[in-house]
């Protein structure tokens, strides 16, 4: 799975299967601070990931 973390401007390739909430736990990201996108669609925390998706993790905090 390819994961782009917008705030850090980092792309990671990781082996993962589970739901969105578990992915965020694995990456140590608080779900309150992000929204998750795959194929331009918003994913909710309960959605299952098969492991071959391209995921974007957008930061909620603009800090400006």
């Amino acid at each position: 799975m390819e994961v782009l973390i917008e705030k850090e401007n980092k792309k990671k390739n990781i082996n993962f299967r589970g739901n969105v909430r578990e992915l965020l736990e694995k990456l140590d990201i608080n779900p309150e601070t992000v929204i998750i996108i795959s194929n331009d669609q918003v994913l909710t925390e309960d959605e299952k990931l098969e492991g071959d998706e391209k995921i974007k993790i957008l930061s909620v905090v603009s800090g400006g």
Binding site: K7, I35, I37, V42, S59, S62
Partner: peptide, 14 residues
Amino acid sequence: LYTFLLGLKNTFTE
């Protein structure tokens, strides 16, 4: 989420 869904703001600035 609102800005993403409406395409109001697509770049990240901090």
